[in-house]
């Protein structure tokens, strides 16, 4: 956690909470409490959040980022936890499905052809799937080096 998050900023954040007032998840989802999460991160006790639903409840609306006097935003802590959770294989099944589809096809679904025809839409442009696959290969190589 120390590598991916600036603990000095986090400490300020744990004492602040100004953006609770505008965070949709803090306002409307029971149990969404970023400060509790941040306090645990600071204590080195973030493990328990990795399997929680909480970390996936941040909507990435970037409202906290815009409001934050540190231009930090507690979404940063949520993102760091989500990445760590994903790297350990903890993520919502739907997310995994989307990821697999993306890796295979370079996008999240194919154009709805019958409906297009009915609507008189032109043939869709070609996707960049081949180039994407080449990029993926190159990326894997560079990562493994």
């Amino acid at each position: 956690m120390q590598e991916s998050l600036d603990f000095n900023l986090l400490k300020m954040c744990a004492d602040c909470g100004a953006c609770y007032e505008i965070c949709p998840s803090s306002l409307h989802l029971d149990g969404y409490d970023p400060r509790a999460v941040i306090k645990d991160i600071l204590k080195g006790e973030h493990e328990k959040w990795l399997t929680s639903e909480t970390i996936w409840q941040c909507l990435e609306c970037h409202y906290c980022l815009e409001m934050c006097y540190q231009h930090y935003g507690f979404e940063s802590a949520m993102t760091a936890l989500r990445r760590l959770a994903a790297s350990k294989g903890h993520f919502p099944p739907q997310l995994k499905k989307g990821w697999d589809l993306f890796i295979k096809s370079s996008r999240l679904g194919d154009p709805a052809m019958p409906a297009r025809k009915k609507l008189g839409l032109p043939a869709p442009a070609k996707s960049g799937v081949d180039e994407f696959a080449a990029m993926l290969e190159a990326y894997k190589e560079s990562r493994d080096q």
Binding site: E60, F102, A125, K126, G128
Partner: peptide, 21 residues
């Protein structure tokens, strides 16, 4: 229309799993 685009890609999906990709 331009050939060659892919998914943008969706942030909450891809960035959470592999920020470099």
């Amino acid at each position: 229309d331009v050939d060659g685009f892919t998914c943008c890609p969706e942030k909450s999906l891809i960035n959470n799993i592999d920020p470099t990709l």
